[in-house]
């Protein structure tokens, strides 16, 4: 299938890219790997007049470590991140989340981390061909005024954020660097998401994501990503969870949990930090409480935006939460540097 015409730009450096972005503004889309964008273009969900390709921007493809962060260029390919040796050992949650995306062979060699974080929200009523959508009224996300995913309709769009890397990166406290021609800002990744289904990102028209900063691993911390899908590949999450904990070997010092694939943005379960703090490591009851909190928080957002039933997905939030927290805790305990720190 062919696509409607547009102008293709391949800037040779970041400044040129930002310049173009500034000039085109609304009428333009950034093209990273294109594995999300092209599908939406083919379905007639977006029809940008201009594309700015990041392919020539080697500065955006870099992956390196500093004293404080793992720095990943926004246009780094998923396969390159997986191949970057330290990731698997030190940021296992990130490694798992990338492995879980689409199909290892194909999305990974084109898909980028920036594209993964900036992919549009999804909904079973929206991410469909024009003819499929024509059988119904236009929904909020497509510029209309109804929502099929919300029982009884809604004036809000209840699409879901399906990024697999966002939950774990947020849980680990990652920051992102956002640039426009005028300005550079670094914000917590969480703030990239607007929680508005119609336009889920807080990026301005002239802004783009250039870098992801993941804090280096500290003694006694551990991360894990869990994804429930019906197949082993090419499958978006039914529910996912990114967990990050820090322990002193006996007690939980810190914990954060972000649920993916349930809400309009990655869903941070802020309360669990308190719930788990100072609880003994391996306290099943604490984990149960946290899981319940996650489930309750998620329930409010659950919409019929994917083919799996809402009730089931809600229940799974609890199960996946427990698994992610336990695995993260296990990793925290085996984090060699724990003993050294003590």
């Amino acid at each position: 299938m062919r696509l409607p015409p547009f102008t293709y730009n391949r800037p040779q450096d970041l400044d040129e890219a930002l310049e173009l972005l500034n000039a085109y503004g609304k009428d333009c889309k950034i093209l990273a790997g294109g594995t999300d964008l092209l599908v939406r273009m083919k379905q007639g969900l977006v029809a940008p007049m201009n594309l700015i390709s990041l392919k020539a921007l080697s500065e955006l493809a870099e992956i390196r470590e500093t004293a404080t962060d793992l720095k990943i260029g926004a246009a780094a390919k998923l396969s390159d991140i997986l191949a970057y040796q330290p990731v698997q050992g030190r940021w296992p949650g990130l490694f798992e989340s990338i492995k879980a995306i689409g199909a290892p062979s194909i999305q990974h060699f084109s898909g980028t981390i920036g594209g993964n974080l900036c992919q549009d929200n999804r909904c079973q009523f929206y991410n469909q061909s024009r003819s499929f959508r024509r059988a119904r009224q236009t929904c909020n996300k497509a510029g209309g005024s109804t929502c099929f995913a919300w029982k009884g309709g809604s004036d809000k769009c209840h699409s879901v954020c399906q990024s697999d890397t966002a939950p774990i990166l947020i849980a680990m406290g990652a920051k992102v660097v956002i640039k426009s021609r005028q300005e550079t800002r670094a914000i917590p990744l969480e703030e990239l998401y607007s929680s508005i289904g119609e336009h889920p990102l807080t990026l301005g028209d002239n802004e783009m994501l250039t870098e992801i900063l993941v804090p280096v691993r500290a003694p006694g911390d551990g991360s894990a990503f869990e994804k429930l899908a019906y197949r082993s590949a090419i499958d978006y999450a039914v529910v996912s969870a990114g967990a990050f904990v820090q322990t002193d070997g006996n007690q939980m010092l810190k914990a954060s949990l972000v649920i993916g694939a349930v809400a309009r943005g990655p869903l941070t379960i802020a309360t669990i930090e308190k719930t788990l703090e100072d609880r003994p490591v391996g306290d099943e009851q604490a984990i149960d409480e946290a899981a319940k909190e996650a489930m309750n928080a998620a329930e409010a957002f659950m919409a019929n935006n994917m083919t799996q039933p809402v009730e089931y997905r809600t229940q799974m939030v609890s199960v996946i939460t427990k698994r992610a927290l336990k695995l993260a805790t296990k990793r925290a305990l085996s984090n060699k540097e724990v003993s050294e720190a003590k």
């Binding site: 469909q128 197949r231 082993s232 090419i234 499958d235 083919t307």
Partner: peptide, 16 residues
């Protein structure tokens, strides 16, 4: 038909 694609029609993959 609510799932006219391989995304939502869960044909098994090589990993399965």
């Amino acid at each position: 038909n609510m799932n006219p694609d391989f995304r939502d029609y869960k044909l098994l993959t090589a990993m399965d």
